[in-house]
Structures are given as C-alpha cells and as structure tokens.
Simulated assay, not measured.
Amino acid sequence: MQQAQFHILADTTSLADARLACLLATQAYRAGQTVFILARDESQAHWLDETLWQQDPDSFVPHALQEEAGAQQAPVEIGHQPPRRPRNLLINLQPEAPAFAGRFPQVIDFVPAEESLKQLARERYKQYRAAGFTLEMVQPG
C-alpha cells in the first residue's frame, strides 16, 4: 500500500521544507532506500545538491543532480522534472502533487506555516487520498 507522509512545518523561513528534505533524504539513505527529491525549480535543485555536499563527512549521502551523468545510479537523485527510474521514496517540494507520484511506494510532502501555501498542501493531501495513498501527518519536534 502506498503511503504519503505530510510534515507540518513550524518554521516560517522559505528554506524550512528544503532543509527538512535533506535531513529526511539522509535518513532514508541510511535506511537503505533510494530517494528522488523533486525540487520546485532548477535553482532549488542546485541548492539541495550543495546542501547535501556540505554535510559532515560522517553524514555524506551519495547523490546527484538529475542532469548529471550517473544520476540514475546514485541512491539520492535531485531534479525538477519527472524521474527516469523507479525509487523507493519521493520527497516533493513542488506546490502541486506530481502526476507521477503513484509510481512511488512512499511520498513525503510538507505543510508550510504560511496560510496560502498551507492551502496548496491541503489540495495535495486530497490528491494523494484520491489516488489511494494512506496518509499520515507528522508534527514538528
């Protein structure tokens, strides 16, 4: 059964979801999962890439940008276009639920603190539910 997990963000900064996405990707990698992080745009994809590179050496996560050679072999792939190969986990940072989300057994999404963005998260929640995902809300902390 497919699962979608929504993380409620208490932090109102614009990078709160992206920072948490890096942490969750690191945890998933350590648990043996393959991950696709769907960035809002190319700029955010590069920011995520750089953030993962800047982690402590003990926390290194093998990853690649979608357009890089060998990206499909990396355990964590970052892009803003649909992935080319199956992965265990989709971390969605886009304002809409991606049409290809059903190809993933697990999806992580975010509920921002800002009201207009929260409404978009409610729409994504409804889309995942309509697609048959089991839904879970995760509180900060």
Rank of each mutant, 00 (worst) to 15 (best):
L120Q: 15
S43R: 07
D41V: 03
A71V: 10
Q66T: 10
Q94I: 01
G32C: 01
K126E: 04
L120D: 06
D56E: 14
W53K: 09
A71G: 11
E123P: 04
Q27L: 08
Q5P: 00
L52G: 12
Q127C: 07
L52S: 09
F36M: 03
H63R: 02
T51E: 11
A69V: 09
L90Y: 05
A101D: 09
P98Q: 05
P57R: 11
R84N: 15
P140H: 03
Q27H: 09
D56N: 15
A131T: 02
L15T: 15
A21S: 11
P112R: 01
A101W: 02
E77T: 15
M1W: 09
Q127S: 14
S14L: 05
P57A: 11
F100A: 12
Y125S: 01
G141E: 05
F133A: 04
A97H: 07
T134L: 09
Q72D: 14
F100H: 14
D56M: 10
I37H: 01
T12N: 10
V76D: 07
A74T: 05
E68Q: 14
L20M: 02
F6C: 06
V111A: 10
F104V: 12
S43L: 04
L9W: 05
A130T: 06
D41G: 01
H80K: 02
V138P: 06
Q54E: 13
Q55P: 02
Q72L: 08
Y29R: 00
R19E: 08
L9M: 09
D109W: 03
Q127W: 04
M137S: 12
A21Y: 03
G79R: 04
L48I: 14
L135Y: 06
A28S: 15
A130L: 06
R122G: 00
P140G: 07
A113C: 06
L90C: 10
L24G: 10
Q72Y: 00
F110R: 08
Q27S: 12
T134W: 04
R30N: 13
Y125T: 04
G32H: 01
A74K: 06
L48E: 00
A21R: 02
N88T: 07
D17E: 11
E136N: 14
R30H: 15
L89N: 12
H63D: 05
Q2Y: 03
A74M: 12
P62K: 12
A25E: 07
G102D: 14
S59G: 04
P105I: 02
Q33D: 11
A97S: 14
S59D: 15
L15W: 05
R19A: 06
Q73G: 12
P62I: 15
